[in-house]
Amino acid sequence: MRCSDRTSDADRADRASYVQLVLADGRLPTGAHTQSAGVEPAFRAGMPLRQVPELITARLRTVTETEAATAVVTRAVWLGSNVPARPAAIESVDRAWRARTPSDAMRSSSDALGRGYARLAAAVWGLDLGGRVLCRAVVMGATAAAAGLGPADIARLVAFDDVQMVIAAALKLEPFDPLLGVQWSLAAAAEVDCMVRRISNACTPADIPAHSAPLLEQWAQQHATEERRLYRA
């Protein structure tokens, strides 16, 4: 028996878990190394390094939860639509995310990442998103559908990406013992699990939470016009 002939549910779960690891790798070529997930704006505004775990928690309860729910809903909508109806269906999810993301700086950085991700998904899974610019969460949700990931898988991936992006950029901006960064990442696991449970059953755009994060949004807006920044956002 060749490996590729195995198709039991357990095998599919194993495959999804491997795909999730590939997509979670920080070296995934989507251009994410240009982003700091809000930590450079936070440092510029005077947030001390020791508050990075609190920033991570704040993001997981607000902007990141909105993004993760958007990805979960996109996956559901993609799988629940006929092929010709998919572009319009995910565009409605994209609009729902935009309506919940008042900072145009945040929308613009998400669009840049979404384009990088769409390039990857087109090359690897043949994903056709109709050539439109879509936010990162929507592209990740459609990729999850194409790659066989479940709703909790993609929600956890969005959360993990955000946590790791904050910590990796913090290490570059205000160097500290990188082992502490690993501890911070693991310490965020409980918060990630709570968030994943809150949104894994989301299935329509109306289910996407609209959390307000005024300080994160203000920092993002300020960063867009900052001089000599290392990260785009």
Partner: peptide
């Protein structure tokens, strides 16, 4: 301008995504 997140090597070599776009 393409911003490189302090990784100018990465942006032109191992992850050229943002430059290609």
């Amino acid at each position: 301008a393409v911003e490189t997140g302090a990784c100018p090597h990465t942006a032109i070599r191992d992850d050229v995504s943002q430059n290609l776009l």
